[in-house]
Design a protein around this nucleic acid. Structure first.
Lengths: 181, 181
DNA sequence: GTCTATAATTTGATAGAC
DNA sequence: GTCTATCAAATTATAGAC
């Protein structure tokens, strides 16, 4: 696997944000984890805001890519919503903490506007995906839009509760309505 | 309204946590907002962990008290779930940011265990309330337990999404299944 | 690209006067 | 209870050598 320093920095930042939020990572802690000095992190990302924007884009692109298209999932006999739920579940299971944009969305009031803009882009793209998924499953456009938002809310909330209690069963019970329908 | 310094500190801390999380408040920022010096804040709460525990208890007690009992709400012709949803909505509307324990729950992996324990207590007491509410509305014990958890998840997630977009309509659409049933 | 060194600020926390 | 004064550590960020 290709692993240049820039990617290593982004991966480390992602992990730290998902466990403790925007204020829980520092240039030094990332540098230390990657095996370089903090000034070298600044070489790749001039300011914390720049790094915040970059890691949010990094996370969103990776997440959307891993999903595939709702239509092709459906055509292969897989329920795209079940797939979507399992993506969140795996993130919890691997002990990586919260959905990064759920975490940052909670902190939005205290974050730079450029970062908030990227968080919104995460939700916009994910809601589009879910909307398409519900239409593939037979919903009309207006039903699909509402269901997409409701699914997103359930998943973000389920992550919070499950993360707090370190209990995957709470995630499963919270999201069972999404999986059985 | 009685407003001793200790309460003023807790109120300020609550507001800051709800907007930016555990790492977004400092002894100095609280002191400045309350009109005292940081050493005086330390007089009331020796360590940040102590203050974190205290503000979480403060928030939970206030939240539960404001709810009233599901049974008496129901007997007065009010749907306890509708009341519960409106409590979260008002918090968003007054621009106070996230549910404090939703915020802290997201950050749980990086918080002192004593604080995490209080966050869990918030969820435990709220899930008990919701459980009772659904039983009052006619659910059996097992249905009520699942519905309580699902309602909590929807509300926490709806707050994240609505907070990110600064858009109450997204909260309303996310939670409409709770209100219409 | 990475390093050393350092600046300027903020942080949690303490000692001791009043 | 609140203050002044202070500390040690951590923070974001920059300058300049290699």
């Amino acid at each position: 696997m290709k692993q240049d320093k820039e990617t290593a920095i982004l991966k480390t930042a992602e992990e730290m944000v998902r466990q403790g939020g925007y204020n829980s990572f520092s240039f030094r802690s990332i540098a230390s984890a990657v095996g370089i000095k903090s000034s070298s992190v600044h070489y790749h990302f001039a300011t914390k805001e720049d790094l915040g924007v970059a890691v949010t884009k990094f996370y969103t692109d990776k997440f959307i890519s891993a999903l595939g298209s709702p239509k092709s999932l459906f055509e292969n006999g897989k329920d795209p919503i079940v797939k979507y739920v399992s993506m969140f579940r795996e993130a919890l299971e691997e002990d990586k903490g919260m959905c990064m944009c759920g975490m940052l969305g909670a902190e939005a009031d205290s974050l730079p506007e450029s970062v908030v803009s990227e968080i919104r882009d995460f939700f916009r793209r994910n809601l589009l995906w879910l909307n398409e998924a519900y239409q593939v499953k037979g919903c009309n456009s207006s039903q699909a839009e509402a269901k997409a938002l409701q699914a997103m809310a359930i998943l973000e909330g389920a992550m919070i509760i499950s993360n707090t209690h370190d209990d995957l069963a709470m995630f499963d019970l919270s999201t069972q309505l999404l999986v059985n329908s």
